[in-house]
Nucleic acid binder design. Structure first.
Lengths: 128, 128
DNA sequence: CTTGACCTTCCAGCGACGGGAAGGTTCATA
DNA sequence: TATGAACCTTCCCGTCGCTGGAAGGTCAAG
């Protein structure tokens, strides 16, 4: 099938699919007219990539996951390790954002938000 | 003072300070030798930028905040609006990450993480 | 007089695409 | 059969917020 259909079936934009080919993630056949020709297995991998990306894995992590996926003799521990370290990373991000949120909410709360120029937010940014 | 000292006092790398000048955020004087020459007011603004950035504001939002900071007749409501919309955005990010975290944790929990090849994580990525 | 720590400009790259130009292919319709 | 739309191709540039490095100028100390 052409890239448009592969895009429709995988949920990935055609641009992204071409990009994934550029960086060596997936290599479809070519038809005689030069068009990319995707098999249903290719689409399967594209969906795998789509899902992995949306779960927060970097493209490089997706590359590892895909390699493990294709390696029928892999140990599940190898996959779990990647996922676990991703989980730790997500936890860290959530903590950082929560801390940031607290500070910002404190500032927003302190600011009158009226027509007068005095503003605790700017004061804090200026002095903090 | 030279850029090195401004860097030390503001906490921003010299590279970043030059970049901020490139994009028109802050324009220091120049000494006769062509070196940038920062006033203590400049350093104040650099610290303002540093703090705003670390609070999650984009460079463009920082530009707005800095303009408001320098406009002595601004209304605090204008600042509050920027901060509030940032807060909303942060909330959204936290929600997304939390959702993602839940899914990922579920997967990690389901995976044995042993030497055998069967792996619920890959299965889910493949089918989800 | 040299060394080393500064400073300058410019150019390139990161991640993960997206936009758009310029052109080839295919298919349906007038 | 012509033509126009809807595909497809490659290529290059732009995004955001820096960061690294090369090539070279300046300055203070020994």
């Amino acid at each position: 099938m052409n890239i448009g259909e592969a895009s429709g079936r995988s949920g990935l934009p055609a641009k992204t699919i071409r990009y994934y080919e550029d960086i060596g993630l997936i290599r479809p056949d070519r038809s005689d007219n030069g068009y990319r020709d995707y098999s249903s297995d290719d689409v399967h991998k594209l969906r795998f990539l789509h899902r992995s990306r949306s779960l927060g894995f970097s493209v490089d992590e997706c590359r590892q996951l895909l390699a493990l996926y294709e390696d029928k003799s892999r140990a599940s521990a190898d996959v779990k390790e990647i996922a676990t370290s991703k989980l730790t990373e997500i936890d860290r991000k959530i903590r950082e954002l929560t801390e940031l949120r607290r500070t910002l909410e404190h500032l927003v709360h302190a600011c009158h938000g009226n027509e007068r120029p005095d503003c605790p937010i700017l004061e804090e940014l200026s002095e903090g």
